[in-house]
Design a protein around this nucleic acid. Structure first.
Length: 525
RNA sequence: CGAGGCGUAGCGCAGCCCGGUAGCGCACCUGCUUUGGGAGCAGGGGGUCAGCGGUUCAAAUCCGCUCGCCUCGACCA
């Protein structure tokens, strides 16, 4: 239907489809309604759309604590479906899981100069270990007599506590490589939080590895970058650009930061994952040395890498439309929802039974099905609800279908509806999911391709950024001052120096000085 | 941290200008009819009007302060 056509029209990546179906009362999707002129959407419109989708699809809600979200059951199920294949992939590549403390002594954080400087602005600090009720005012407050000797930082990331531990785990080259991952929550006191995309507390995995040589550590960082790119593209159906960060954008304490960047439907870029080659910075800060085969003491080489609940934000802002969420089948908590329709008790019994039979046969084949036989809501309500929640396929069974031995199938991402025999539907179901997965990726790929601009003049770059956003491939002279100047004037940052694609030299778009290759600019989250 | 906006029922809002019994829609409860794209009718429950202080016979409404939230910037996975 219209959604597909609009989505696939090139050059309109930043214009989510205008409404064709009208919503009632509480369901507004303000941005789409405001967009009746089909003008480029203001960022704010997408902002409101995003907040509404997250809430109405039941993914998460704001908690009483500023910047911290409550992840609701449906959102958590989505996160589990992201975690599971990632965890399996880490294990398949030789990593093992462990868990390190939430609290980091202030002195640990201070050991690596660049690291502490990078995180200083956003650390939550625990200073007391007891609270006390004032006998007079009855107000409860930290007990001034129970102040910690050394404040504890709530981990913004775990390099320091982990390297302090690795020191005890590593003696010789035979202990290497050490390949550890942990699933954890971290806290970064963000100025401007947004559900999933930037929350004060967020969930992630952080891999930390130790190696005998620089080459091996670098290869590990690259290997995990590739793993992230494969996962995000194959499971989340989100195309990414792999690249290196500039020194200015590099992780605090890293020698080299690799990144996977994507472009969202509002034309803004998002860093979807990072992988760092840490050199010997943390080994030196925490005195982690090993004896090599020649009985010489050497500092170990390190990597760290992570992806977070931000990926859920990326999914929402890569595939969603005016009806709400669209989830890629591989991570969808519900891959197919079965809606039975009836007019009387006899029919109810018949269609609900048929619905569960259909669900069971698909569940046996390993798929995630849900039967919505809730008598509280009518079919129309359910259709809208499950579309909002992004379920890839809807299977409708009414008296008609049961009598004919058929089922009506509706595709969430295209709006297409077809009625076919039950047997044919059961047989084709797996193939449909694969097709949807592929089409979502292709659709996103076309969108990003259509909004990636190769630009040779600064004016042109500014115009594109103002009018539509998107990725801009342009030459840069490699200087941080140039990078900062461009950011201040346009709001765009260098998202990465792409690892793949053309390497042809040129002249810096800003200074005219020589450039080795084009870099990727964008306004970003 | 800067700039805007908003705090009234679970949610969305009106009432405030011009002080005088706290309202509407959705949701919720009961009953009946309904069920193929967000059902209808009837009845019902639910409020320290964000908090504190001031003015007044009387404050959701006027004045002051505080707190919280959202959006937009600077900062960041």
């Amino acid at each position: 239907m219209a959604a597909t056509a609009t989505h696939e029209r090139q050059g309109e990546y930043n214009r989510p489809p205008i409404p064709r179906s009208h919503f009632h009362r509480c369901l507004t999707f303000a941005p789409y309604y405001k967009n009746t002129e089909n003008m480029a959407l203001p960022m704010q419109a997408v902002s409101e759309w995003y907040a509404e989708v997250v809430e109405r699809a039941g993914l998460a809600e704001h908690s009483p604590i500023r910047g911290c979200m409550t992840i609701k059951p449906y959102g958590w199920a989505l996160w589990e479906n992201i975690q599971r294949p990632l965890d399996e992939a880490f294990k398949a590549t030789g990593h093992t899981n462990a868990y390190f403390p939430l609290f980091i002594p202030l002195s640990f954080l201070a050991r690596e100069a660049a690291h502490v400087e990078g995180f200083a602005q956003e650390c939550a600090v625990v200073t007391h270990y007891r609270i006390k009720t004032d006998p007079v005012t009855k107000s409860v407050a930290p007990d001034p007599e129970a102040e910690l000797e050394e404040p504890l930082v709530v981990r913004p990331t775990s390099e320091t506590i982990i390297w302090n531990t690795f020191k005890n785990w590593i003696r010789s080259y035979r202990d290497l490589p050490l390949l550890i991952n942990q699933w954890a929550n971290v806290v970064r006191w963000e100025k401007r939080p947004r559900l999933f995309l930037r929350t004060t507390e967020f969930l992630w995995q952080e891999g930390h590895t130790a190696h005998a040589t620089a080459e091996e550590a670098l290869a590990e960082a690259r290997r995990m970058l590739d793993l992230y790119a494969d996962f995000i593209q194959n499971y989340l159906a989100i195309p990414v650009v792999k690249g290196r960060k500039t020194p200015h954008e590099r992780f605090a304490g890293a020698v080299e930061t690799f990144t996977v960047e994507t472009l969202l439907i509002d034309g803004k870029a998002l860093q979807a994952g990072t992988s760092h080659f840490l050199g010997q910075n943390f080994a030196k800060a925490f005195e982690v040395r090993f004896l090599n085969a020649k009985n010489e003491l050497e500092y170990v080489w390190a990597t760290s890498w992570g992806v977070s609940t931000r990926l859920i934000g990326a999914v929402i802002l890569s595939h969603g439309d005016e009806k709400g969420l669209i989830l890629p089948p591989r991570i969808a908590p519900i891959q197919g929802v079965i809606v039975p329709i009836w007019r009387n008790e006899a029919e109810e019994k018949q269609v609900v039974e048929a619905a569960y039979r259909l669900a069971d046969s698909l569940k046996k084949a390993g798929f995630r099905l849900h039967v919505d036989a809730d008598p509280q809501h009518r079919p129309g309500w359910k259709f809208n609800e499950w579309e909002m929640k992004g379920v890839p396929l809807r299977l409708v069974l009414g008296p008609r279908e049961v009598a004919e031995g058929t089922v009506e199938v509706a595709w969430r991402h295209t709006g297409e509806k077809r009625t076919l025999s039950l047997e044919a539907a059961i047989e084709a179901f797996p193939k449909w999911l694969e097709t949807i997965q592929t089409e979502l990726f292709q659709r996103a790929y076309q969108r990003i391709k259509a909004s990636t601009f190769t630009v040779d003049s600064y004016d042109e770059m500014r115009t594109i950024l103002e009018e539509k956003g998107g990725f801009i491939l342009a030459h840069w002279d490699g200087n941080t001052e140039t990078e900062i100047a461009i950011k201040e004037e346009t709001g765009a940052t260098i998202r990465c120096i792409p690892l793949e694609g053309s390497q042809e030299p040129g002249r810096c778009i800003y200074t005219g000085r020589p450039s080795v290759q084009r870099v990727l600019f964008a306004r970003a989250y």
